[in-house]
Design a protein around this nucleic acid. Structure first.
Length: 106
DNA sequence: CGTATGGCTCCTC
DNA sequence: CGAGGAGCCATAC
């Protein structure tokens, strides 16, 4: 139930809300780039802010922050418990996408 | 409250 | 291909 999310969001900044909203707006089986969200929320220059917000994302399972990747199509980074491995595995397990892992081992 | 620093990045030269 | 800067937000002191 998304209503709970909003209850939590209320404790955070409107910017994060926009970021998470955009993340949740990501269609399953697909991926978006930080710039994509940044642009979507109206900040086509706050790509980092988007990542920072996702990093603080308290809605780990609620917000598919793992579906967010670089604009190149690479993963980039992941501060969540598990690191890139978690992000990679998640995507591979959820959609088995192809990821040119340039950070993690083969 | 104000100042200073860092970040799951993106773009340009 | 490699290196540097930009613009935005959140956090700490």
């Amino acid at each position: 139930m998304k209503k709970d999310i909003r209850e939590l969001m209320k404790k955070y900044t409107p910017f994060q809300r926009a970021v998470w909203m955009a993340c949740m707006a990501i269609p399953k089986g697909q991926t978006r780039s930080y710039g994509w969200i940044a642009k979507r929320i109206g900040r086509p220059g706050a790509a980092r802010a988007v990542g920072a917000a996702l990093g603080k994302n308290p809605f780990a399972p609620l917000v598919p922050c793992h579906r967010v990747i670089r604009s190149d199509g690479t993963l980039g980074g992941f501060s969540a418990p598990g690191g890139l491995k978690a992000k990679i595995k998640l995507l591979k397990k959820e959609q088995a996408i192809r990821i040119p892992n340039r950070n993690s081992e083969g």
